[in-house]
Amino acid sequence: MLNGNEWHQLHGEFLGNSQHLMTRADECLSHLELISDDKDAIECLLGTLQQIAGKADAASVKTVAGFARQLRYLLYFASAAGRLQPKALVSLRECLSLLSWQIELVDPVTGLLPLDDHEQQELLEQFGCCCGIGKVESSHPTPVEWPVALTVVHP
């Protein structure tokens, strides 16, 4: 964890880089909404999510890093299976909106994001299910650790 002075120095750079990357992610997603199987747009989005995770790791914003990494993981498998249907793209947009919102809420003094990850987990699970790559196996409600074991759903 960075101390207040270290974080303050990184905050402007992290926020600026992350906002730029979120704009790029939004452009990639807009392109996917027009052409859902565009490999270049998918690769761009995968790379952008990886960069966001890396920038967040470097700035010690673990919640953002983990969310970006988990979203990338699901997107990778969904795109490999050719399962980015319109409903999945809507869910992906919701995930990116939450990610953007979380970046904005990172405390500029401490670098902390004082939120639980419940909404992240719900959106990730929803995205995975919309992609048809599986559903989370659970016999009782417990916090979901990603990546999780997925049950493959065959069409």
Rank of each mutant, 00 (worst) to 15 (best):
L75Q: 09
A59R: 00
D26W: 15
S79N: 12
L84T: 13
L46P: 13
G47H: 10
E43T: 02
A58R: 04
F77G: 14
V64T: 05
S60W: 00
H31N: 14
S30T: 11
I103D: 01
S36E: 04
A25M: 11
G82L: 06
K87S: 07
C131S: 04
S97M: 15
L115A: 04
E33D: 14
A53H: 14
G66E: 10
Q121P: 03
V109F: 13
L46K: 13
D37C: 10
Q120S: 02
L71C: 03
A68C: 02
V61G: 01
C95F: 05
H31F: 09
L124R: 02
E104G: 06
A41S: 08
A53D: 03
Y73F: 14
L29Q: 10
L113N: 06
E122T: 03
I133W: 07
E94N: 08
L113F: 04
L115S: 05
L123Y: 01
E104W: 08
G134V: 02
S91I: 06
Q50K: 15
I103R: 09
A53I: 07
L32S: 08
L29M: 06
R93I: 02
C130F: 13
S91E: 11
V61F: 04
K39G: 12
D107G: 04
K62N: 01
A53G: 15
V61C: 02
D37R: 11
S91M: 05
L45K: 03
G54C: 15
Q102Y: 12
A56Y: 14
L124S: 06
Q121Y: 00
L71D: 01
L74R: 11
Q51H: 10
E33H: 14
I103V: 14
T63I: 11
L75N: 10
D26I: 09
E104S: 11
E94I: 00
F67H: 00
S30L: 09
Y76H: 15
E94Q: 07
V109A: 08
K87F: 05
S79P: 03
G47F: 09
P108D: 04
L115R: 04
G47Y: 15
G54Q: 12
I52N: 05
T63A: 12
E125D: 08
C28A: 07
F77A: 12
A59P: 07
Q50E: 12
R69C: 12
G134D: 02
S91P: 05
L74I: 11
V106H: 00
Q126E: 08
K55R: 14
C44D: 12
E125S: 10
Q121K: 11
R93F: 07
E43F: 05
G132K: 03
V61D: 01
S97Q: 15
S79D: 01
L115M: 08
D37T: 13
R69Y: 13
E33W: 07
E125G: 12
L32N: 06
L74K: 06
E119W: 04
L96E: 03
